[in-house]
């Protein structure tokens, strides 16, 4: 089996976050990472970015007080909702 190049390996590192690699791909990547410090670092960087981005999503989901919800927008939406509610009641 031909050795993977760094370029091939970098694609697989990214794709293993998206799909299950085939046995052959996994094995090839493992062999490559074993001998290649640059790709080992690349893999750690990708995994780290992946984790940090998820953290960003989690923070967005839990935090509610740090960002001001513009009061004008709030009032505008309140009106729209009230109108829609009334409308629904009448029908």
């Amino acid at each position: 089996m031909n050795m993977l190049t760094c370029k091939d390996a970098s694609h697989l590192v990214s794709e293993q976050l998206e799909r299950r690699l085939s046995f052959r791909e996994r094995w090839g990547l493992k062999m490559h990472l074993w001998i290649c410090v640059n790709c080992r670092r690349f893999e750690r960087q990708m995994n780290f970015m992946h984790a940090a981005l998820r953290l960003l999503g989690k923070r967005a989901e839990v935090a509610d007080d740090s960002t001001e919800f513009p009061p004008e927008a709030r009032e505008r939406i309140r009106k729209v909702l009230a109108e829609r509610s009334d409308h629904d009641h009448k029908h």
Binding site: L56, G57, R59, A60, E61, A63, D64, D65, S66, T67, E68, F69, A73, R74, I77, R78, L81
Partner: peptide
């Protein structure tokens, strides 16, 4: 809803 969840929804939407 607006008072209880508005700010959280807004923050979430803003990040995205």
């Amino acid at each position: 809803w607006l008072d209880e969840h508005g700010a959280a929804l807004y923050k979430y939407a803003l990040v995205q």
